[in-house]
Amino acid sequence: MAAGGDHGSPDSYRSPLASRYASPEMCFVFSDRYKFRTWRQLWLWLAEAEQTLGLPITDEQIQEMKSNLENIDFKMAAEEEKRLRHDVMAHVHTFGHCCPKAAGIIHLGATSCYVGDNTDLIILRNALDLLLPKLARVISRLADFAKERASLPTLGFTHFQPAQLTTVGKRCCLWIQDLCMDLQNLKRVRDDLRFRGVKGTTGTQASFLQLFEGDDHKVEQLDKMVTEKAGFKRAFIITGQTYTRKVDIEVLSVLASLGASVHKICTDIRLLANLKEMEEPFEKQQIGSSAMPYKRNPMRSERCCSLARHLMTLVMDPLQTASVQWFERTLDDSANRRICLAEAFLTADTILNTLQNISEGLVVYPKVIERRIRQELPFMATENIIMAMVKAGGSRQDCHEKIRVLSQQAASVVKQEGGDNDLIERIQVDAYFSPIHSQLDHLLDPSSFTGRASQQVQRFLEEEVYPLLKPYESVMKVKAELCL
């Protein structure tokens, strides 16, 4: 049975990233139509530049190519590739079939990587351009969430054990800070992308030097003109047959890092959902379990974690691919890159769409948070109580021993009897502590235990987050809708 299948058929496997999760716009960027249309555009740009620099290419040939950029006979191309065992030459023939007058000058002087690699770089750039505003929107939604809850005390956790208090907004800023680093890295790697350009079979530009009869300047002009037509500021000066596969490492490393950030955020949300302090959106008709109707599973956060793990592992592909590119190139890269580049971007696209949807509907339960604080705060307040007693004339050592005994009794009630923490009640009825009984409410005010959390939130948002989001103001209103 021949390899390949009808990918629109229910009898043929289709990647869930495309069929179930990723956005239509990201799927289109990695589609065959987008790819092969870009090949034709690159052939047109090459012909236009070659004509401008004096090669015998007519206006009629150029116009014929322009008129057929979208006229792609995919069936013919597939048949040609089956016959020739070469995808680029299959599309040269297919393009030439609908451009008979231009057929002889299509791909003039070029090698397969002229269309293959340059198209990949265009796709990487455009895919990054799709991700950047999506990530900015996630940051914006979380920034709104953090600002609104900047002063809401909550129990902090280290080692997932109760620690000092923080605020809900401050905790959210930990998430935002990681995503801001990801946004900066995505922008950097996007701006650092260079075009492969017009380089020939081993990167020496020998074929173009021959076409222009040894004119170095025209060869350099050709490279520059096509690079500018493709919208790049610069091209690699040095290439082998391909652009260095280190570029793929750079791009997928940034995406993998984004995956790590999203995994951490969504894990926190899942843990908070278990504590009943916070939940992701839950639709009115949504079913959490087929057997347990009360369940409210954090399905979206779980999906993000599941896909983020996949995204983090994909960076190993370009690392290994770059390491086995012998001399000017081997074909070890080809099949692998067809999979890992598309999957990385479709996965990143999915987790950003999902995280935006989550961040637009996060639900906080202040009463649950308050109750958990009441359970733990008495123990945390013991040092403040000791200091207040010393100020009232008591002995630190005597007070410490009193607190120690009462704390152990209260802990026994919590752990052995399943009761509430009654340390404060014990202190309130103990005559030894009568000098500070009137101060206990103040000493137990949760806001006095959150330090500068709310001020940190305000400063972080104003100095770091809002300036970073400013270039994306025009796209901030787009909502994230999930079908599944």
Score class of each variant (00 low, 15 high):
Ala2Thr: 15
Ala2Lys: 15
Tyr13Gly: 10
Tyr13Pro: 13
Ala22Asn: 14
Ala22Ser: 15
Ser23Gly: 10
Met26Gly: 01
Phe28Asn: 08
Val29Ile: 12
Val29Pro: 01
Ser31Tyr: 01
Asp32Thr: 14
Asp32Arg: 13
Asp32Ala: 15
Tyr34Gln: 06
Lys35Met: 13
Thr38His: 05
Trp39Thr: 09
Arg40Gly: 00
Leu42Ala: 04
Leu44Ala: 10
Trp45Asn: 14
Trp45Pro: 02
Leu46Gln: 05
Leu46Trp: 00
Ala47Asp: 02
Glu48Ser: 07
Glu50Gly: 09
Glu50Gln: 07
Gln51Gly: 08
Thr58Cys: 11
Asp59Cys: 14
Asp59Trp: 09
Gln61Trp: 06
Gln61Lys: 07
Met65Arg: 04
Ser67Cys: 13
Asn68Gly: 11
Leu69Ile: 15
Glu70Ile: 13
Asn71Ile: 11
Ile72Cys: 09
Asp73Gln: 09
Ala77Gly: 14
Glu80Thr: 13
Glu81Ala: 00
Glu81Asp: 08
Arg83Lys: 10
Leu84Trp: 15
Leu84Ile: 06
Arg85Lys: 14
His86Arg: 00
Met89Asn: 00
His91Met: 12
His93Thr: 15
Cys98Leu: 13
Cys99Gly: 06
Lys101Arg: 13
Gly104Met: 15
Ile106Ser: 04
Gly109Cys: 03
Ala110Val: 04
Ser112Asn: 04
Val115Pro: 07
Gly116Trp: 01
Thr119Ser: 15
Asp120Phe: 08
Leu121Ala: 11
Leu121Met: 10
Ile123Arg: 05
Ala127Asn: 05
Ala127Tyr: 00
Ala127Cys: 08
Leu128Asn: 14
Asp129Phe: 13
Leu130Asp: 06
Leu131Thr: 09
Leu131Lys: 07
Leu132Asn: 14
Pro133Ala: 14
Lys134Met: 06
Leu135Trp: 04
Leu135Cys: 07
Arg137Asp: 08
Ile139Cys: 08
Ser140Pro: 04
Leu142Ala: 06
Ala146Trp: 01
Ala150Trp: 06
Leu155Gln: 03
Gly156Val: 01
Phe157Ile: 05
Gln161Cys: 05
Gln164Ile: 11
Leu165Met: 06
Arg171Met: 00
Arg171Asp: 00
Arg171Gln: 00
Cys173Gln: 04
Leu174Ser: 12
Ile176Cys: 12
Gln177Ser: 15
Met181Asp: 13
Leu183Arg: 04
Lys187Val: 10
Arg190Ala: 10
Arg190Gly: 11
Arg194Gly: 10
Arg196Tyr: 09
Arg196Gly: 10
Gly197Ala: 15
Gly197Leu: 01
Lys199Cys: 08
Gly200Ser: 12
Gly203His: 01
Gln205Gly: 12
Ala206Thr: 08
Ala206Glu: 05
Gln210Ile: 10
Phe212Met: 13
Phe212Val: 10
Gly214Cys: 10
Asp215Thr: 08
Lys224Thr: 11
Met225Ser: 11
Arg234Tyr: 11
Arg234Thr: 13
Arg234Trp: 08
Ala235Gln: 14
Ala235Arg: 09
Phe236Asp: 05
Ile237Ser: 09
Gln241His: 00
Thr244Asn: 08
Arg245Met: 02
Lys246His: 07
Val247Arg: 06
Ile249Tyr: 08
Glu250Gln: 09
Glu250Ile: 07
Glu250His: 08
Val254Ile: 12
Leu255Ile: 10
Leu255Arg: 02
Ala256Pro: 03
Ala260Gln: 09
Ser261Ala: 10
Ser261Cys: 05
Lys264Tyr: 04
Cys266Thr: 09
Asp268Trp: 03
Ile269Cys: 05
Ala273Met: 14
Asn274Val: 08
Leu275Asn: 09
Leu275Glu: 05
Lys276Asp: 09
Glu277Thr: 04
Glu279Lys: 03
Glu280Pro: 04
Glu280Thr: 04
Gln285Pro: 11
Ser290Glu: 02
Tyr294His: 01
Asn297Met: 05
Pro298Tyr: 01
Pro298Ile: 03
Arg300Tyr: 10
Arg303Val: 03
Cys305Asn: 08
Cys305Gly: 09
Cys305Phe: 01
Arg309Ser: 07
His310Cys: 07
Leu314Val: 09
Met316Gly: 10
Met316Tyr: 05
Leu319Asp: 03
Leu319Asn: 01
Leu319Thr: 00
Leu319Trp: 02
Gln320Ser: 10
Thr321Gln: 11
Ser323Thr: 05
Val324Gln: 07
Trp326Lys: 01
Glu328Phe: 01
Glu328His: 01
Asn336Ile: 14
Ala342Met: 07
Glu343Ile: 05
Thr347Phe: 14
Ala348Glu: 07
Asp349Leu: 03
Thr350Lys: 06
Ile351Asp: 03
Asn353Val: 09
Thr354Gln: 14
Leu355His: 04
Asn357Arg: 05
Ile358His: 03
Ser359His: 13
Val363Trp: 05
Tyr365His: 12
Pro366Ile: 04
Lys367Trp: 06
Lys367His: 09
Val368Trp: 03
Glu370Arg: 11
Gln375Pro: 04
Glu376Lys: 05
Pro378Val: 09
Met380Gly: 02
Thr382Ser: 13
Glu383Thr: 03
Asn384Pro: 14
Ile385Phe: 09
Ile386Cys: 10
Lys391Asn: 14
Gly394Leu: 08
Ser395Ile: 02
Ser395Asp: 15
Glu401Trp: 07
Glu401Val: 05
Glu401Leu: 09
Glu401Cys: 06
Ile403Val: 13
Gln408Cys: 13
Gln408Ala: 15
Gln408Thr: 13
Ala410Asn: 04
Ala411Val: 09
Val413Ile: 12
Val414Arg: 05
Gly419Phe: 07
Ile424Val: 15
Asp430Asn: 11
Ala431Tyr: 06
Tyr432His: 11
Tyr432Arg: 07
Pro435Asn: 09
Ile436Trp: 04
His437Met: 06
His437Ile: 12
Gln439Ala: 15
Gln439Asp: 15
Leu443Val: 10
Leu444Pro: 00
Asp445Arg: 13
Pro446Gln: 03
Arg452Pro: 04
Val457Ser: 06
Gln458Arg: 12
Phe460Leu: 07
Glu463Phe: 14
Glu464Val: 07
Val465Met: 06
Tyr466Val: 13
Tyr466Trp: 15
Pro467Thr: 13
Leu468Phe: 08
Leu469Phe: 08
Leu469Ser: 08
Pro471Ala: 15
Tyr472Val: 12
Tyr472Thr: 08
Ser474Phe: 15
Val475Ala: 15
Leu482Asp: 09
Cys483Asp: 15
Cys483Thr: 12
